[in-house]
Design a protein around this nucleic acid. Sequence first.
DNA 1: CCGGCGCGTCAGGGTTCCGTCAAAGGCGTC
DNA 2: GACGCCTTTGACGGAACCCTGACGCGCCGG
Lengths: 227, 227
Amino acid sequence: MTRVLVIDDEPQIVRALVINLKARKYEVDAAHDGATALQLAAARHPDVVVLDLGLPDLDGVDVIKGLRGWTRVPIIVLSARHTSDEKVEALDAGADDYVTKPFGMDELLARLRAAVRRAEPTGADEDEVAVETDEFTVDLAAKKVNRAGRDVRLTPTEWHLLEVLVRNSGRLVSQKQLLQEVWGPSYGTETNYLRVYMAQLRRKLESDPSHPKHFVTEPGMGYRFER
Amino acid sequence: MTRVLVIDDEPQIVRALVINLKARKYEVDAAHDGATALQLAAARHPDVVVLDLGLPDLDGVDVIKGLRGWTRVPIIVLSARHTSDEKVEALDAGADDYVTKPFGMDELLARLRAAVRRAEPTGADEDEVAVETDEFTVDLAAKKVNRAGRDVRLTPTEWHLLEVLVRNSGRLVSQKQLLQEVWGPSYGTETNYLRVYMAQLRRKLESDPSHPKHFVTEPGMGYRFER
DNA sequence: CCGGCGCGTCAGGGTTCCGTCAAAGGCGTC
DNA sequence: GACGCCTTTGACGGAACCCTGACGCGCCGG
């Protein structure tokens, strides 16, 4: 059964969604603030998330980023804001769709079906939450890196970079893709950023930073994380 | 480079889209009716499709179905119709997103980025991701070549050349086509480049580089990859 | 028999790309 | 306002890569 996580602070909207979804044989969890939402998502692993941007505790975009840190679950954003900027920001943060309130229930359900459908065949959203190497462990959900029993402190940018590499474990990630995912879609040529932060990651995580085993450089193409 | 197929019968909309997309380094094809659209999609394998529903020849939904018959390429629908029914129908037919006209260019571009982003890591718009021979394995998604259990390091040019040959596995690829795909459209006669890099590929991948089994020369014509 | 052509091989030199270090700029906290 | 942390930027040596020219070989036609 498809599991949906609904995040909204307005009870009547939550109720309407829950009723409609349950009637269509979805399994539904609901949260009314960002913190419980992130917690619920980690615990329940929903197949799709419906997220209202106007939450009491966290900014909606931060919720998106929090989710995108460790999962590719489809996120459909609900919002009362019609401005283009809001939409662009949410979509670039990692949302899959953006629906403005008031919305038609039929349309939302159709968008939800579309989101679930295209997520399906990739198979396991259960792409591990923790990745281990012989030297350190990366916990994507908890946003923690452990090395020799001690937690390693990473800056936000370091963590974001690590995240992208680990999520594509084994695959080559092009410099452009790294730049755009970490620094934003308007970046793509500032390869010096990559050099600096890759050096910092290696210094913090590799046992011999000048001869990296896990963060491999492919000259002229990009970087690759090997466990 | 990301390839976009724009389908719309209104010239001014097509022009606006093409200009904006090209300015952002997308490669753009355009069609003004459904028949040529389907043809172009098959020939060019776009990474994302922008489709206007009001076409002169075919119904928009039929175009969606025609595409969905053989590809999972993201489809973003443009339409002047605001009714819920239209949206539901298009989305359930296989569209990924639905934008009503008039639309904000920023928003459309953001939705386009979102569509491309989530389609990316699954890798294969192509059928096969990994190609095996008796001596080595080419993983097109991870950009990895494995031979006798060990990863083979390829330079960007070597990899690019290998990619073109493997994607045309079994077929003869002309020297001109190889040169243009790897070195750019303005090349076509510099066959010495091919000789050098083909030699390097064979040295790295063939068990007997001077008697190649997989990278076959067709004198005067081009090269062929045989698995 | 010999010259031309296409292909494979090799090695050098110019250029690009990467790792490293250091310092300046931005931002929030105390 | 001073401090600390993080990000951005610039500079430099060294490595990796790409282009280039030269040479040898086999094939074919003159």
